[in-house]
Design a protein around this nucleic acid. Structure first.
Lengths: 70, 70
DNA sequence: TAATGAATTATCGTTTTACAATAATTTATT
DNA sequence: AATAAATTATTGTAAAACGATAATTCATTA
């Protein structure tokens, strides 16, 4: 699945706890965990927005398109 | 709505017609039009992936988080 | 200024799935 | 061990992405 979710990386960089982000964003830790691990098939912009807001980052920091073969 | 969809910009840069992109991605022109204009509330990664593939761009080129006030 | 092409808008229906809620389990951390 | 943090699991629901289609508007060009 060529869209890679890098939320785990950004969280680590910012040293932010999932719990805190989940609380701010307004989603459960369970769902945030799934998102972090790239186990969801899409995302709503309002969720993405609040994540970017809290982490002070861009969608491009969280989502990367990776080609399968060059 | 602080997540801005810049698909229209990238399409213009690449000089790609909506029809062609829609065909490649496998969605209708109608839905692509809605996406272009930021009239959708989210996106599935497989759709985002095929758009990035065709336009040879990154999610970050298509989606921007814009703060309301500084 | 028709005629064509391209894009938008509008309806309605369907299926997918993001999310909540909750609880149990696993994995850090102290 | 005890606590905190994160993951996994289950079930349910509401939201919305998307299809299909057609009509309308906008743009281009002969």
């Amino acid at each position: 699945m060529p869209i890679r979710v890098r939320l785990n990386v950004v969280l680590a960089e910012r040293n932010v706890k999932s719990k805190d982000l989940a609380e701010y964003v307004g989603i459960t830790e369970a769902n945030l965990s799934l998102l972090k691990q790239g186990k969801v098939k899409g995302i709503r912009f309002d969720t993405l927005e609040r994540i970017c807001d809290y982490l002070d980052c861009q969608p491009g920091d969280l989502l990367r398109f990776e080609r399968v073969s060059e």
